[in-house]
Design a protein around this nucleic acid. Structure first.
Lengths: 192, 192
DNA sequence: CGAAACTGCAACAGTGATGATGCAGTTAGA
DNA sequence: TCTAACTGCATCATCACTGTTGCAGTTTCG
């Protein structure tokens, strides 16, 4: 992981860290300026315990971003981006990412510090994403003249919008994923 | 405006208020947790002057949100959403909105307080937006089975994504608008 | 079992933001 | 021109958050 200089934590300490990270996600999503006190309360932990594990607020949010980025990268990998048929991969990846992003919306909205683990993972995810899109392009699913970087950004935006959801807040990830892929490939125009 | 109980400000006071709002946009966009002091410095004004005009940080951000929402509504109106041909209206509105949104990105990202002027304006804008989309639908530009609310959300997302722009940060609004409309209507799939 | 790690609690000092006020000097506008 | 409005500056009290430390009690793990 990020820090190889500190030795392994005891089992209960590990549990505390996870509880803190999950509480931070919840609390900071509702109020990005919330105090450590509020986070500690939500985690069922004393404020001093947080400070023992994370020197700064910065250190906490960094860890939060890394943790979430790792889960996101895992979600993409689980979709077999290199081997599954492009359409299948896109669907699976989208559904997986939707779940991770809805659980770690705040952490993934954090601006990745240049050079951080989170930044590297985000970069890796972006590359895998473009790779899938290229395979889709080669399969004639995407126009050969399309700018894949723009397509990727649109894809990200569609995922983000799906999570702001009004009526479909609690909809099935597969249903949402299907709509995202359909919109990405065909837009809103009339069907042939 | 929002407050009809206070009498009109003197010309220089009005100027100060505008400077403060513009500075707040700039500073808070870079750091949402910035202090009043920083905003005052950016506005070329003493911190006490801000407190004389805006009791709270809340009051300041409310005014900021209202001001920006008014400009956004104006940008939509300027596109003649009810009279111009749908495709022309969409293009003009998009280009106008892109400019307003890039200048007031933070203010427009503020969660609108229920019942506030900003909330009402955002609602009005959304309705006008859907009205234009319906006209486009009647002109066969949008599939008759399309969910216009989803289309509107996608449209918003595309605008937002265009402003995060990497390479096209300084691109011509008309160029960006054209790409947005094209993507909205046709997606990334192969062209006939 | 027993040492080391971990935690809660209480207390502490330091920091910085907030909001208010009085006063003196400047500016707008009738 | 003359008054009322406006502003900068200095000052003040208050308050919340931060980060640290010591200690006593609990839990993990070899």
């Amino acid at each position: 992981m990020g820090d190889t200089t500190t030795r392994a934590l005891r089992a209960d300490a590990e549990r505390s860290v996870r509880a803190i990270l999950e509480a931070a996600e919840q609390v900071l999503a509702a109020d990005p300026g919330a105090s450590m006190e509020q986070i500690a309360a939500a985690a069922g932990v004393a404020r001093t315990t947080i400070h023992r594990r994370f020197a700064n607020r910065q250190a906490l949010t960094d860890a939060l971003a890394s943790s979430a980025a790792r889960q996101l990268a895992q979600a993409v990998d689980d979709g077999r981006p290199d081997t599954a048929p492009p359409l299948v991969a896109m669907h699976r990846i989208t559904a997986n990412v939707l779940q991770v992003k809805s659980a770690w919306a705040f952490a993934l909205s954090l601006p990745a510090e240049p050079g951080s683990e989170a930044a590297e993972l985000q970069q890796e995810v972006a590359l895998r994403c473009i790779a899938v899109l290229r395979r889709a392009q080669e399969s004639k699913l995407i126009d050969e003249a399309a700018d894949l970087d723009w397509v990727r950004r649109v894809y990200y935006a569609l995922i983000g919008e799906s999570l702001h959801g009004g009526a479909d807040r609690d909809a099935d990830p597969d249903t949402l994923a299907a709509r995202i892929i359909d919109t990405l490939l065909h837009g809103a125009g009339p069907r042939p």
